[in-house]
Design a protein around this nucleic acid. Structure first.
Length: 394
RNA sequence: GGCGACGUAGCCAAGUGGUAAGGCACGGCUCUGCAAAAGCUGCACCAGCGGUUCAAGUCCGCUCGUCGCCUCCA
């Protein structure tokens, strides 16, 4: 199977390091609702994992949830809720809605607040190696000590280190922070602010920076080098750029990740779907009108690396296609009988080509039309076997 | 401002040098008492200009346009 590695910007033959494929996917911050963009990302990895398992791999899948950060605290204040109550509520909603889409839950769903001890260790390690420094109860990553910083940023077109530095200075969002040595330095541990929750650390009470939890969890649950690390395309910089820096300098092993996979953004009204713009299609609302299979088919009819916009018409088409597969199920019955190697091989070829689900779903659709026309039980059985690989419930 | 991506029919979209998939919409036909559904069928000089090549949507350059990232974001 070939997968596109964001870091090298090329298709690479996928070969796991060990028998068990290690996959880490950046999860959500639980302060708001689940929209179609989230579903696209997580159904993409759900599909990948189902496919890998179908091909005989054992997969260990870890996803984080950032249950303590600025957004959670801010939203909790707005709602006059306790921050952890808000987090718990939104985590339940997220998991519930993803369950409704028939996703395979991660083997480990890790909370940032359960990770404190190891995050502190990671900070200590980076301090020992001279790649971080303490300043007024905070720990910062020292980008000047890391000539390799920004590999991922470069890969996605964000020029080089010096340009990033220049731009960051021009923009001036953080250089005013006198606690930092360099405007690009980022927080590994931040000192407690008045009224905010805090955890103990050698540098005083505080909480983790924005990127450190993922380094910590990935290395703890999966090892210092992992097979696949994924997330939305908006995470490649700065989040994954910083993750690479932290992880590789802590472990002394590179690459931290064999294959970086980034999922394209979903658009609405011509712009990127985002909480701040409010142009959201909510999974919860879609589920009122469409089946999980229809929603999955809409997502899978787009290739994961590319951005797209969801139109109502596409959902109707997907629902019609989902119906085709239920008709195939009626034709075949509960027991699968026979196979169709032609369809199987074409499906494998599509999926092996960087998870080309648009082609795979199209193949299955045409096969379904044919099977129904010919009342072909063998073909129908094969279709149902493969739709199951896509996580469909027909 | 810097950097990057993209620009294929009304819309979505495949296509990684060799006579332009597919889907939706639309038109025609078949079937049906009408309609719907279904089936058949029709519908593109690939943003513009220049270059490389026997051959370019596909490679290179420029222009125009759209979007993204650089700031929390799947």
């Amino acid at each position: 199977m070939k997968l596109f590695n964001t870091l090298t910007q090329s298709l690479q033959e996928f070969k796991p390091i060990n028998d068990t494929v290690s996959i880490y996917v950046c999860g959500v911050t639980p302060y708001d609702t689940t929209h179609l963009g989230h579903a696209f990302t997580y159904i993409t990895f759900d599909t990948l994992i189902r496919y890998l398992e179908y091909k005989g791999h054992t997969v260990k899948y870890v996803q984080n949830v950032t249950d303590i950060d600025d957004d959670v605290l801010r939203k909790a204040r707005e709602l006059d809720m306790k921050w952890d109550d808000l987090g718990n509520r939104e985590i339940e909603r997220f998991l519930g809605e993803m369950d409704s889409l028939n996703w395979r839950r991660p083997d480990v769903y890790a909370r940032a607040t359960d990770e404190m001890e190891r995050i502190v260790q990671l900070n200590e390690g980076l301090l020992e190696r001279g790649l971080a420094y303490v300043s007024e109860g905070c720990v910062f990553y020292d980008v000047r000590k890391d000539p390799e910083f920004g590999k991922m940023a470069q890969a996605v077109g964000l020029n080089d280190y010096h340009s990033m530095l220049t731009i960051a200075n021009e923009r001036g969002n953080f250089p005013d922070d006198k606690r930092k040595r360099d405007p690009l330095d980022f927080v590994l541990w931040q000192a407690q602010a008045p009224g905010e929750p805090a955890w103990e650390s050698p540098w005083g009470p505080g909480r983790p920076g924005w990127h450190i939890e993922c380094s910590s969890m990935a290395m703890h649950y999966l090892g210092q080098q992992i097979d696949i690390h994924g997330g939305g395309a908006d995470l490649n910089f700065p989040h994954h750029t910083c993750e690479i820096a932290q992880s590789e300098h802590y472990s002394g092993k590179a690459p931290f990740v064999r294959t970086w996979m980034h999922v394209g953004m979903v658009y609405q009204d011509g712009e990127k779907m985002s909480k701040s713009l409010g142009n959201l299609t909510l999974v919860r609302n879609l589920l009122k009108e469409y089946s999980a299979d229809a929603i999955r088919l809409v997502l899978q009819s787009h290739h994961y690396r590319y951005q797209w916009e969801c139109f109502p018409e596409d959902l109707k088409i997907a629902a019609a296609n989902a119906y085709l597969f239920t008709q195939v199920r009626e034709l075949v019955g509960p027991e699968l009988r026979g196979e169709d190697s032609m369809l199987h091989n074409r499906f494998i070829a599509a999926m092996d080509n960087d998870l080309n689900t648009p082609e795979a779903t199209l193949l299955l659709k045409h096969a379904a039309q044919q099977a129904l026309e010919e009342k072909n039980i063998n073909l129908g059985s094969e279709i149902l076997r493969l739709t199951k690989v896509l996580g469909l419930t027909a």
